[in-house]
Design a protein around this nucleic acid. Structure first.
Lengths: 234, 234
DNA sequence: TAGATTGTTAATCGATTAACAATC
DNA sequence: TAGATTGTTAATCGATTAACAATC
């Protein structure tokens, strides 16, 4: 019995990869990682798709199906060893590595991001910050000295930065994203409310609280104070 | 010809509503609103599904199909009048109203949220803030006096608060969400990395930058510096 | 009118779920 | 062994897209 029935070590999109893992599956894996981490913290050593599904509010079948894209991690009649499954999933997602991250734009929002303690424990190291305001350049925020944008290319390659967080004024989003892509950055977390255009192979995820609020109001709009909507969570 | 062929004014999930609008459609509408607003700002008066689709990176067919759940807003051979479509979509989403919002938890993150200028222009008014730390209570942040959690129920009903933003320490998420639900809040924007359980009819959206990063690393993990992934944006 | 684009139906595509043989 | 739960296939469900008649 092979441990890894599918060649998931190939870069996605390569012909070496026989089965394309749906993006929606990849998006769920970090949630599995989080839940498994919690279980481990609680001292739970073995779990199963039923229990995981209850925690995550998805069907057990979906969890088993999702995992099956990457291998066989459980034992029939038993379930999954939490620590083992966690290790495997982290490796699949590349979370066993350290990722160096640059923050672009150090206004109020960029400041909050640089001071946010939630990235480091998960292996995302904020190692550089850039801003074009001369008053900001040289200042230190969260232990990081702010550099001018002209340093971008050199610092990105020199410090092995592969991920960028964009927190600049909306009007500058596309230009900054273009510069990042030009420097070889292929994963961008965009805090601005602008839909940046990027070439294939570059991934952008947006953090957009207003958009999140605006879809919830639909369900509030025509409901009386005690009415029930049709779904419980988003 | 009726202007509104479907009874979209009924509360979703009610038997009065003949066609249930898929949640995925509702989630796209705020993006349509945003793009239409941009077009209007640029002085564009008429658009079409082709142009909107190019902006938003979706197919023209999807835009027409999405809009068809709510009515007929265009003219064959012409397209859509930007201002008109924008007004209609905002009304459908309830964005023609003002929404009063409470922020729960005024640590570093809650502070940043209270100072974030992006909510007000879109009709979301932060009108109250709560924190259980006695050192915080009474302080003023972003023009709002921080109240103790014991004030929650009274303030929520008294100030007509229908939406809450949760930015408390992870360990308190579920308890705070329970309190909010108990006070009648049915839309919650959750900034903590905890999957809160809520009853049917309450909507939770999460802002989780770490989760966003963790799904992008999958595509970076096994790629060489110049390799291309299989999708351009997320 | 001719050309363009909608609104809508039907076809396609993809994701979720149910079911169950395999097997721990 | 009996019971439980996986991994996987097939069925279902739902969303996207293509196509085109309607019509501006």
């Amino acid at each position: 019995m092979a441990t890894i029935p599918r060649d998931f070590n190939s870069p996605p999109g390569t012909s070496l990869s026989p089965i394309e893992v749906p993006e929606v599956v990849i998006d769920r894996l970090p949630q599995y990682v989080r839940t498994l981490t919690q279980l481990l913290d609680e001292g739970v050593e073995v779990t199963n798709s039923q229990q995981l599904g209850a925690q995550l509010q998805v069907t057990p079948a979906q969890i088993r199906k999702d995992l099956s894209y990457f291998g066989r991690f459980g034992k029939q009649g038993r379930g999954y060893r939490v620590r083992h499954l966690l290790t495997e999933l982290k490796q699949i997602l590349g979370l066993d590595a350290q990722w160096n991250v640059a923050v672009i734009g150090v206004g109020r929002l960029g400041n909050a991001i640089l001071n946010y303690p939630g990235f480091n424990p998960d292996g995302f190291h904020l190692v550089a910050a850039f801003d074009n305001n001369p008053e900001n350049v040289g200042r230190e925020v969260g232990g990081i000295a702010i550099q001018p944008m002209s340093d971008l290319a050199e610092t990105v390659s020199g410090r092995n930065i592969t991920i960028a967080i964009v927190a600049v004024p909306s009007a500058h989003t596309q230009s900054v994203v273009d510069q990042l892509v030009g420097c070889g950055v292929r994963a961008i977390l965009n805090y601005t409310p602008i839909n940046a255009q990027v070439p294939r192979g570059v991934r952008v995820r947006s953090i957009d609280p207003v958009l999140a609020l605006q879809s919830m109001t639909y369900y509030l709009a025509f409901q009386g104070p005690d009415a029930n909507g049709h779904l419980s969570a988003g």
